[in-house]
Design a binder for these strands. Structure first.
Lengths: 365, 365
DNA sequence: CTCCGCGATGCAAAGGTTTGCAGGAGAAGT
DNA sequence: ACTTCTCCTGCAAACCTTTGCATCGCGGAG
């Protein structure tokens, strides 16, 4: 029923190849012919069949975007940025959601592999070796994770965590909890590493709690643990958990920031709307989305240059994949969920009463 | 480079058609052969090329999902539900975001048309005739809108709006504003119609404000108008606007619910996290997503039954499309953003001081 | 007047899969 | 032993486009 290239060719009295060229290489066809073909095409409602085109060119002009949880407000801005960037380059984006499940993640990559030109793997929960293996089936750009040999764009959450801890330290807090995120998260490890280092350098006792689900529920459920840890400030894996935690602490009768200070990470839109407004580490999610699309498309076009049609046309022996790894800067946004700690008036001298060093708690990741 | 059906055939000593059948019609091939083929396929890392399959079968096993704004927390639960439902039926979902732009919407439908088996059009901003026209290019299921002749799933927001107004009325409010949503929204019209009717029936003065952007900004920006309208309660187009409005009223020194009551619509997760917690109309978004996928897939399979290969096999003259239109129920969730109105203690008698009827304000939609 | 080159078009192969039809081998029925 | 089935497998066409190569006509250079 839908018009094909052949219908257009017949109706406009030219060969199908001319019709094809009218769309994919307009400069090769006589302006008169071109406009005639375009007219009949319009007339017949013809639209090129992307499947057929993909079959022969090997490029689908689609890219996949796999995220852990589309309902986490961290992702939508990234998705939107990626989509608009892709659309500018005449690509479409396939968004899929893994429910924070590493198995689903793998399955999705495989399923998408043949119908996209590449995949943006955002905040993967798989282990690195699996990612590497999958990267041989389909072009991959990893977001929020560094894996050797693969192009990646990450946010420098380590820096952000450092800023956050220093901020809390400056406010006089000496006992801080780190509310860890999900198992398998690279970001989580980075945050922990940076927070641990900064705490040690600033004579702060850091209690690590986790792993936890990176959601409000996860944050809320940890409130009890936080209270038992006896800390005066908390750095949470993300804003959602921070917000859930504040809610949970509230239920326990603890006020933020009067009794406990809380810092989130991500600076999702929501963090400006809660009360108290959340102090948090802002991450450039939209920029990350755009950068990832660019990297994928670039890698992709170099691929297609390398293996010509049928692999015949080989290229000058430059075969090192340019695996750029971009790190985007983060910064601290101070709002209302952090306040002075118990030592605020005592000066920095008497930190001795706080145990120094790092304490791990209630589960290893 | 990637293994094709032909490689597998060669390696396992059978014809390509046998390999094909091993995957798409396993019961037609001898168990021994089948396992041998499967083994070599596994070995070679073969995966069927969906583009090629789509080309000949005419079905891509993809479905498109077009939403107005993926960053609006209303959508993600719907998307997730649709995706998981689709995955159960071995379909994948293409999510795209229109930025609330009717033009982008049309463009996306056209772009997706040839690479999906059908499209879920969620909260469209286009006009009905355009939707109808597009539905001739590709199978469509509309969500949050009723358009004649097309399958649709809607939420009964009219009922929800009625409940909300009655709730406010029972609290003693006699001057209510309706904070309208975006131009072109069917939901918006439904809400207005129901609210207007209910207000008239309850001797309530209803002021309609709008159209507004269905975001926090939109709600916040309307705060001033709300104050000027001199109402004691507001029903907002959605939760995001309600939350933005509360924020904006706060900036103007008006407290919710003490000075003004606010009711939202949607019951997004966020509405439980703000202070005050939002009273809102809960809509069954996940159920809507599932239902829409089911309807699309069903319509779709009946299509494919009708036109057989090459249109040769015609079917018994039953050609009426079964355009089911599902309406899902909504209900009111009473939380903390609504409180007694000025007439709460005065009894229902002296409503005379409030103007009765419906007032339109600051712009026609 | 011939030859070359160039711009525009046609020709046909190729890409990976599905599927109606036909053929072959063996089993079962007579 | 001969038909009749059933089960399995092979054959080849078809799906819609893209693209390297061949062809053709024409204008200009020699």
């Amino acid at each position: 029923m839908p018009a094909t290239i052949r219908d257009v060719a017949r109706a406009s009295g030219v060969h199908i190849s001319t019709v094809s060229r009218t769309f994919s290489a307009p400069h090769l066809v006589n302006p008169d012919t071109r406009s005639r073909v375009l007219a009949t095409a319009e007339n017949l409602g013809y639209r090129p069949n992307r499947a057929a085109r993909a079959l022969i060119t090997g490029r689908t002009h689609n890219i996949g975007l796999i995220v852990a949880d589309i309902a986490n407000p961290f992702f939508p801005p990234l998705i939107k940025a990626a989509e608009s960037q892709a659309r500018n380059r005449d690509y479409h984006v396939f968004v899929a959601d893994t429910n924070e499940d590493a198995l689903v993640e793998e399955e999705l990559v495989l399923a998408l592999a043949k119908q996209v030109d590449g995949i943006l793997l955002c905040s993967p929960r798989m282990n690195n070796s699996l990612i590497e293996q999958l990267s041989r089936e389909v072009a991959l750009v990893v977001i929020n994770r560094l894996v050797a040999g693969l192009p990646a764009v990450v946010m420098d959450v380590g820096h952000g965590a450092r800023l956050a801890v220093e901020h809390l330290s400056a406010l006089g807090h000496r006992d801080i909890a780190l509310l860890g995120g999900p198992r398998g998260s690279w970001t989580n490890r980075e945050i922990r590493r940076a927070a641990t280092g900064t705490a040690r350098a600033s004579d702060i006792a850091l209690t690590t709690l986790g792993p936890n689900a990176p959601t409000e529920e996860g944050g809320g459920a940890a409130a009890e643990h936080v209270r038992r840890a006896g800390v005066t400030a908390v750095l949470a894996y993300n804003d959602l958990m921070a917000i859930g935690l504040i809610e949970g602490l509230d239920r326990l009768g603890l006020r933020v920031p009067e009794d406990i200070s809380v810092v989130g990470i991500d600076d999702i839109a929501l963090s400006r709307l809660t009360r108290p407004k959340l102090t948090t580490v802002a991450t450039p999610t939209a920029a990350a989305g755009r950068a990832a699309v660019d990297m994928l498309l670039q890698q992709d076009s170099s691929w297609s240059a390398r293996l010509g049609r049928g692999g015949a046309r080989t290229i000058s022996g430059d075969d090192r994949r340019t695996t750029a790894q971009v790190s985007l800067q983060t910064h601290l946004v101070i709002r209302d969920s952090t306040g002075p700690g118990p030592h605020a008036h005592a000066g920095p001298g008497n930190a001795a009463m706080a145990a120094t060093g790092v304490v791990a708690s209630y589960s290893k990741e």
